[in-house]
Design a protein around this nucleic acid. Structure first.
Length: 236
DNA sequence: TATCGCTTTGATCTGATACG
DNA sequence: CGTATCAGATCAAAGCGATA
């Protein structure tokens, strides 16, 4: 199933420098390196599941991950997209709770598991990490609040435009500086915007007709960024 | 070539708001 | 109040491309 990947040394890990572990000293990096366990997940594989208990946290080394909650009606709501350097599952660990969402690889993804004890040790002894984690938490909270307001107040077209911009924020562009560096299904995009797949498809077609977006297969190119931002009706 | 999963499209239903 | 309108969801069916 999942290939273990023992050769990744935290000392040289590019992703670590973008993570909460960027401020570790040399001994701590060594400790992290010896206790973490790196695993490769194939596209579509779950890293952890909603309602299960956490035993540690996950740090993405390479790849892309979506986090979603399963609603009563069976629909998924994507609550977060994650990239290399991002931490997964830390809120559940800190709160001593079950996972409130499922994490699934959207492409082949390499993830390092850091045991609970080690994570808590870092948080207790390293102020820089504590501060970083607090920043993460407050950022998550801000995003969650923003999402609530969006879903409650904004029409679908604005949410769809925002969903596209969100994908761009997290994963950026390809070399042409316009094509999103991520491929999601229409259903997944709908699940970011919180709408039905059919509605998402119709709105994407509208945005194409308006000359805002272009499609090549499942790839999305933003041809008129200013117009897309305008459609998204972002107030700040 | 048969099949599967995803995408698209049209038709219809529903709930919220506006309006006479 | 009753009802007209609108946004969006739901349902059904067809299209389409990758893959076994």
């Amino acid at each position: 199933m999942n290939k273990a990947n023992p050769h990744l040394d935290c000392q040289f890990c590019e992703a670590r420098f973008k993570s909460v572990f960027c401020d570790l000293n040399k001994e701590e990096v060594t400790e992290l390196s010896t206790h973490k366990a790196c695993t490769i997940y194939k596209k579509g594989q779950d890293i952890f599941k909603q309602d299960s208990y956490p035993h540690g946290i996950y740090c993405i080394n390479a790849g892309k991950v979506k986090l979603f909650q399963l609603a009563e009606n069976g629909r998924e709501q994507i609550v977060r997209l994650a990239k290399p350097g991002d931490l997964l599952g830390y809120r559940a660990i800190l709160g001593g709770e079950k996972y409130t969402s499922t994490a699934e690889a959207i492409v082949e993804t390499s993830v390092c598991f850091i045991p609970k004890n080690l994570f808590f040790k870092f948080v207790e002894t390293n102020n820089a990490i504590t501060l970083q984690v607090m920043k993460l938490l407050s950022n998550d909270l801000k995003n969650a609040e923003h999402k609530i307001t969006d879903l409650a107040q904004k029409p679908v077209k604005e949410r769809m435009a925002e969903a596209i911009l969100f994908m761009k924020e997290v994963y950026g562009f390809e070399n042409d500086n316009a094509t999103l560096n991520v491929v999601l299904t229409r259903e997944e995009i709908a699940n970011i915007a919180g709408t039905a797949t059919e509605t998402a498809i119709r709105i994407l077609a509208d945005l194409k007709n308006d000359g805002v977006l272009e499609f090549t297969g499942k790839k999305i190119k933003i041809s008129k960024m200013n117009k897309l931002v305008h459609v998204a009706n972002i107030l700040d």
